[in-house]
């Protein structure tokens, strides 16, 4: 497995305090929001801030693009790999 995907799964679980979920339980291709993991917009903000702090990301103001990056662990890993500054 892609180590970045594993790192992001662990980050999701720790930053959102997902008590009943292990990082391995998260399907990297499954949707993070609404269906799938079932995160909401407040979770999205917390996750966005955590990702910014860890990887020094800048997120586009255009929400459709950001939504695509945040679709799943797999899309997030690709986005982080392409735009991380730390």
């Amino acid at each position: 497995m892609d180590p970045l995907q594993a790192e992001i799964r662990a980050l999701i679980v720790s930053c959102l305090n997902l008590e009943d979920i292990q990082p391995e339980d998260i399907d990297v291709e499954a949707p993070l929001f609404v269906e799938g993991l079932g995160l909401d917009s407040i979770d999205a903000l917390e996750l966005g801030v955590a990702l910014q702090r860890r990887y020094g990301l800048t997120l586009a103001a255009e929400s459709e693009e950001t939504r695509r990056h945040f679709a799943s662990v797999a899309t997030l890993a690709r986005f982080v790999a392409a735009s991380r500054t730390k």
Partner: peptide
């Protein structure tokens, strides 16, 4: 609205 990009931008500033 508080968007993801706004929150990430502000995280950098608050830090």
């Amino acid at each position: 609205g508080i968007s993801l990009s706004t929150a990430a931008l502000l995280a950098g500033r608050v830090d």
